[in-house]
């Protein structure tokens, strides 16, 4: 019994971070209809920023977020303006090429700047843990999980209750009508893309004390995010959170009971099964035309 609880807990913790990475991705897709293949590199960049703030300025990763997240937001604004906006009216393949090329480009820039060495943020509390009954709980993973969930909920509330949030949702549901009610759609795109980057930036900050970073870290982690986005329903934030947690738990149980080399296989099977039953994912809607915050 203890084992089940411990496995569920570990799965939920890592699932929370998957969810946070995926929320940014699904948000950008839902609103701009752009699949950002460079999303993983933004994760990497945020982890590098955190690393350097830690090593040069001695800034704790959680404090560093105050700098890293806004910087990532800015980086998102710039990227949107220079690369995404000019291709928004172009066919989908063009956007795929652009974001894919960006991903490869960023990897190589990071490689040239920092080499492919792994770099770690080693905090005093990195491996601190406490015990409740038979369960071991890592402070850091717990904090990362809580922060990830809080951010996902925060972004959902923002979308639901703020002016900008409703403009973002409106744009996701019908860009043309959004223009006609006076929404500056270009601005919505820019802010949404930047938000996506800021969210993945936050995920990067939270991951830094847990994982070493090298230029390919994000690319390795982003695969699961794509699975989660599709599973949750393209564009659905609630779906991404649910699917993220689910994948985390499935991974955890399958690596224990079936062996670590099976876990990707297992979640892929789950993925196929769920999509066979519900082709649009948990909360997706036909044609993925909408973004929903439930």
């Amino acid at each position: 019994m203890d084992i089940y609880l411990q496995l569920a807990l570990s799965g939920l913790f890592i699932g929370g971070i998957y969810a946070l990475i995926s929320v940014g991705l699904t948000l950008v897709f839902g609103v701009l209809r752009v699949v950002n293949f460079a999303h993983g590199e933004y994760l990497t960049i945020a982890m590098f920023m955190t690393y350097f703030l830690f090593h040069t300025a001695g800034l704790d990763p959680f404090l560093a977020s105050v700098i890293v997240v806004p910087l990532m937001f800015l980086l998102g604004l710039v990227t949107e303006r220079l690369l995404i906006r000019p291709t928004l009216d172009a066919p989908h393949v063009v956007q795929v090429f652009v974001t894919f090329a960006l991903s490869v480009f960023l990897q190589n820039v990071l490689l040239a700047l920092f080499t492919s060495d792994f770099r770690s943020v080693r905090t005093a509390y990195a491996t601190a843990a406490f015990q409740i009954g038979p369960l071991y709980v890592s402070w850091l993973r717990l904090a990362a999980f809580l922060a990830a969930i809080a951010l996902a909920v925060g972004i959902a509330l923002f979308l639901k209750y703020s002016y900008m949030g409703s403009a973002i949702r409106a744009t996701a549901q019908d860009r043309r009508s959004a223009r006609l009610v006076g929404i500056n759609v270009d601005r919505v795109y820019a802010i949404t893309f930047a938000l996506g980057c800021a969210l993945v930036g936050a995920a990067g900050v939270l991951l830094s004390p847990l994982f070493p970073v090298n230029p390919y870290t994000g690319a390795d982690m982003i695969l699961v995010a794509f699975v989660i986005v599709v599973l949750g329903g393209m564009g659905s934030i609630g779906g991404a959170v649910l699917a993220g947690l689910m994948i985390g738990v499935v991974e955890s149980f399958s690596s224990y009971f079936l062996g670590g080399e099976m876990k990707q296989f297992v979640y892929f099977i789950c993925f196929m099964l769920i999509l066979a039953i519900r082709p649009v994912g948990f909360f997706g809607r036909k044609g993925a035309e909408v973004m929903d915050v439930t």
Binding site: S166, A170, Q173, D174, R176, L180, E289, V290, D292
Partner: peptide, 10 residues
């Protein structure tokens, strides 16, 4: 616009 074009899921 023609065809109403409401925000369907609001």
């Amino acid at each position: 616009p023609e065809g109403r074009r409401l925000f369907p899921f609001m």
